[in-house]
Design a binder for these strands. Sequence first.
DNA 1: TTGATATTCAACTCCGAGGTTGAACGATGC
DNA 2: GCATCGTTCAACCTCGGAGTTGAATATCAA
Lengths: 122, 122
Amino acid sequence: MRTPNHLDQTLLALADPTRRAILQRLSAGETRVTELAEPFAMSLNAVSKHIRVLERAHLVHRRREGREHLLSFTPKPMDDVARWMDAQRANWSARLQALDDLLQEEDRAAASAPPDKKGRTR
Amino acid sequence: MRTPNHLDQTLLALADPTRRAILQRLSAGETRVTELAEPFAMSLNAVSKHIRVLERAHLVHRRREGREHLLSFTPKPMDDVARWMDAQRANWSARLQALDDLLQEEDRAAASAPPDKKGRTR
DNA sequence: TTGATATTCAACTCCGAGGTTGAACGATGC
DNA sequence: GCATCGTTCAACCTCGGAGTTGAATATCAA
């Protein structure tokens, strides 16, 4: 908890529509900060701060060329997120399968008993 | 931006190690609040708040049974995250492929010219 | 009813996120 | 040199996240 790990930073960075839009834009290619900020209804400074959050999460890389800062998307942290989610999915999918089996078991058992008024919800 | 959409809520909820641990625990089966809070070095109230964040993101479902609140993992929002990430991946993977092609093109061209001092960085 | 258990609600602190404005800094162009 | 462009830094505001403690609510058990 005292170590804000990479997943934390990455997920936090992704949990904002502006930043996701920035990433989407960057996935189309390197872009200058000003150019990147142009479509947003907020100050350049605000966008600059969003960029710093993305940098902290290692989701964008900055390359200075003269006075221009060129930003590009570095997707590696997203892989970590994907890996974590896959691991989670593996966990609960197995369990949901077991639950399904159990429910079917119950249904077969209920078929030989008086039916229940309320159906299986959701 | 004024509509904090589902992805926002979900990613924000996931961007905390305590909450991810809670989900991990819940993926092993329904759990009472107190039982859930026991391993964490924080007050029951703090855990209760985390649970509310997870509920807001529809990542957990609460079922009241007497005085006990039984929580379970509802993974659907994670699918939305996965879908968004896949879409992103489709975007930039295509572009990275194009970039790779370009770099190889340049390498071939450079092979016939005097070599460059600084190598291809990262 | 009384008392214990399970959980939330309410009020508070602290801190950082997200936004603003204004100034500073570094590179470019004349 | 000087003005301008691209970008950040600094200071400030507001809001909500994350934690605390203490009281309230609801259920169970006697």
